[in-house]
Simulated assay, not measured.
Amino acid sequence: MSALRGCTVLHLDNHVLAIAKPAGMPSCPDDTRDPDALTCCKDFLKERFDKPGRVFLGLVHRLDRPASGVMVFARTSKAASRLSESVRERNTKKVYAALVRGCLSEGGNLEDYIRKEQNRVYVTSTRSQGTKLAQLDYKPMFYCERNQLTLLQVHLHTGRKHQIRAQLAQFGHPIVGDTKYGGRHNLWAGASPDDRGIVSQIALHAHRLEIPHPVR
């Protein structure tokens, strides 16, 4: 593995590049013009292989800017097509770790409908025009009674924008630090600088992504 402007390269072959994206970095260029994962990875490949001209790298999925974790990019157009099809057909397994407010002693599943409005999504229990189905499973891994926090393992079945954040908030257990969806941001007030690293931006991390290799 190698460091890459805050990212870490997890896997590299002729068809696929997998990285760990840090919290706070956009997946691709946006209006802020801040360094983004896609551009950083293109620069890395250009330098690594001394490539002239522009480098192709296909964005096949996204990870919310304030979240951290695994991302996969396609190095060829054929790989991009096949990986995108796997994502579209839900032939993937996405597992996240989320630190949420409140006590959850048992696992379960959430099935809602999500409606996107500008840069925010809204959750409803009933289907209506403009909504999309959102499904996830969750399992408690650890509970901190003192701070009333639960660490969840979340298995995402549908990949909607802000899905985990919005559904858990609607469920009454917002993600720590996620002020957009009701999570308090002052949990680590008074903590040492080292302790603050426990939660960077929001406490949501994509720690496993399983997807068929595009050529194997």
Rank of each mutant, 00 (worst) to 15 (best):
L149I: 06
T179Y: 12
W188T: 10
T124R: 12
H162F: 12
N147I: 05
L168Q: 04
C144M: 05
W188Q: 13
A166I: 11
L133C: 02
Y143P: 00
Q167R: 01
P140H: 04
H173P: 06
F171V: 02
M141K: 15
H157P: 08
T150G: 11
V154T: 03
V176M: 07
Q129F: 10
W188D: 06
H155S: 15
Q129L: 13
M141D: 08
V123H: 11
T150P: 11
T126H: 08
I164V: 11
Q148M: 12
G172R: 02
T131D: 08
Q148P: 07
R146N: 14
F171H: 09
H157F: 15
R184W: 05
K180Y: 06
G182Q: 02
H162G: 15
I164S: 07
R127D: 07
G182H: 00
T131C: 09
V176Y: 06
A134K: 00
R160Y: 02
L152A: 13
H157I: 08
R146I: 12
H155Y: 05
I164L: 12
A166V: 12
K180F: 01
K132R: 15
R184G: 05
G177N: 09
H185K: 14
T150F: 09
L133N: 00
K161V: 10
H155E: 15
L152N: 14
A166R: 12
T124L: 14
G130Q: 07
G159F: 08
G159L: 08
S125H: 14
H173R: 08
R184F: 04
T131Y: 01
W188C: 05
G177A: 10
G172E: 02
G182F: 00
Y181M: 03
Q170R: 13
D178T: 02
R165W: 09
L149C: 10
P174Y: 01
R146Q: 13
H157L: 14
L149M: 15
N186L: 00
H185M: 07
P174C: 06
G183I: 09
T126M: 09
S128R: 15
D178E: 07
T158P: 12
W188V: 03
A134I: 00
Q135Y: 02
K139I: 03
V176T: 02
H173M: 01
I164Y: 06
H157R: 14
A169I: 04
Q135L: 06
T124V: 13
A134S: 07
C144R: 12
W188G: 00
L149Y: 11
H155W: 07
R184N: 02
Q167F: 08
Y138T: 03
G177P: 07
Q163E: 09
G177Y: 04
Q170V: 07
Y143M: 11
P174V: 07
V123F: 01
